[in-house]
Simulated assay, not measured.
Amino acid sequence: MIVKNKFLFNFSASHIGGGYKRLFAYSKIFNSRGGAYFIIRPNCKKIALLFNKNKYFYVEKSNIKRLLNDSYYLKAILDSIGCLNLYYAYGIPIYSKIAKVNWFHVSNVLPLSPHGIPISLFHYVKMQVLGFRIRHNLINADVISAESLFSLGFFGSQYKNNLFLSVNGSDNEIFLFKKKNLQKKDNIAVVVGTYDYKAISESFYVFKMLKKSYSPELKLVIIGDSKKIPKIVISDKDVIIKGILSHESTINYLNKAKYYISTTYIENSYNAASEGVFLSNESYISDIAPHREFLLNIPFRKIYIKNISRSILHIRNRDISNLNMKLWENVVNEMLGRVKKNLISLEKLKT
């Protein structure tokens, strides 16, 4: 197989959520441009079947294997590819110079700031180790990107020339937002994600407030790993657990929802919130920096809800007149513009 673009994208650290969404978009776009190289998990194999101009390498990574050696597979892959113009690591530390341009993308801001966030001890230790590895190896990254200005703020001034804002594309949301009046809403509130820092118990309090104040027949739909949901929530007769769903199915629930709820303590991006805000009738989201970035020029009100010590931002879909979103094509073109700039700088250094 002849691959046109000498780019290697390493998405082996993530196969769900924002990671899968970016992987799918990059695969689709580079496939249309002659192909690129991708490192992915075996359970993302259907992407390879869809986009056959790309070359895919499969890596199985357990949490323990990632903790002990999260790049054991790279040498063999690099030997088979040869010289690269770009190595793009999604959430994986770059331990040495691999390509002409080495790009580290922040997939999760928790490794950079795990303190004060409600997570398990194991998760905290894991984030501490990963955070140390990321910071210790930033010297190898020519570009450091993240999905919000908040996340980029965790890097010191010595990296200011390397920083690059790369938000998630929102093709589906833009399309569905333009058709929003055509979708009949169900009497449901939707929560997406069940990790500790998502604070499902607080989302449950928001749901109870909505049920009591506005809609007695309201049901709460939770999308995510059921093992991480508190017993008091999972045992409630008005709670519907859907487990881990595809992005397409998640979008479908959000598009049918009267309410979207997110009480997360920390996020790398506003991606999940933007989906909920633009697709549901009303949204109640935590007052954190990435959410504030997203809501620039969008009307909202700050409220307080019983049993929740933090403020919550309330947004009504009918008040939204503009889209703070980008198409994936634009996101990729911006990335390629930065890569080209770095490559030109390298050529000038040679002369």
Rank of each mutant, 00 (worst) to 15 (best):
M127Y: 10
S96R: 15
I64T: 10
P111S: 05
I119A: 03
I117W: 01
H123S: 13
V125H: 07
L50S: 11
C44S: 15
D79Q: 13
Y73T: 07
L78W: 14
P93S: 12
Y73L: 04
A89V: 06
I64E: 08
G82N: 12
H105N: 11
K97N: 13
F51A: 06
H115T: 07
A76D: 13
G91A: 13
A76G: 05
L50M: 11
A99E: 10
I77M: 09
P42Q: 12
W103I: 15
V125T: 08
K126H: 08
K46S: 15
I77P: 09
Y58V: 04
I64A: 08
Q128E: 07
K100W: 00
L49H: 07
Y95V: 11
V59W: 01
I81L: 02
L50Y: 06
Y90D: 13
L86H: 00
S62V: 02
Y87E: 05
Y56R: 03
I119G: 07
L112A: 01
L49K: 12
L49M: 11
Y95S: 13
K55S: 11
N102V: 05
N85W: 03
V125R: 06
Y56K: 02
K45T: 11
A99R: 13
N43W: 15
K65P: 00
Y88L: 02
G116A: 05
L86Y: 00
A76N: 14
I77S: 09
Q128P: 04
L67P: 02
A76Q: 10
Q128T: 09
Y58D: 03
S71F: 12
L110G: 02
Y56E: 05
V59F: 01
P114I: 08
I92G: 05
L74M: 15
S62I: 04
M127I: 04
I92W: 04
E60K: 14
E60I: 07
V125C: 07
N54I: 04
I119C: 08
H105Q: 15
M127S: 14
K61W: 04
I98N: 12
V101Y: 00
S113P: 12
N108H: 02
P118A: 08
K53P: 02
Y73F: 15
I119F: 03
G116P: 00
L110S: 00
K97Y: 09
S107I: 01
L50T: 05
F122D: 06
C44Y: 06
I119W: 02
P114E: 01
F57A: 06
K45Y: 14
S62K: 01
P114N: 03
A99W: 05
Y73R: 09
R66S: 06
H105F: 13
K53V: 03
H115K: 13
G116E: 04
K100V: 01
K75W: 02
L86S: 02
K100C: 01
Y72W: 15
F57S: 01
S62P: 04
R41V: 08
K65S: 11
Y58K: 07
I94W: 14
Y124E: 07
L50V: 04
K126L: 03
N63F: 06
I47N: 04
D70I: 06
L74C: 10
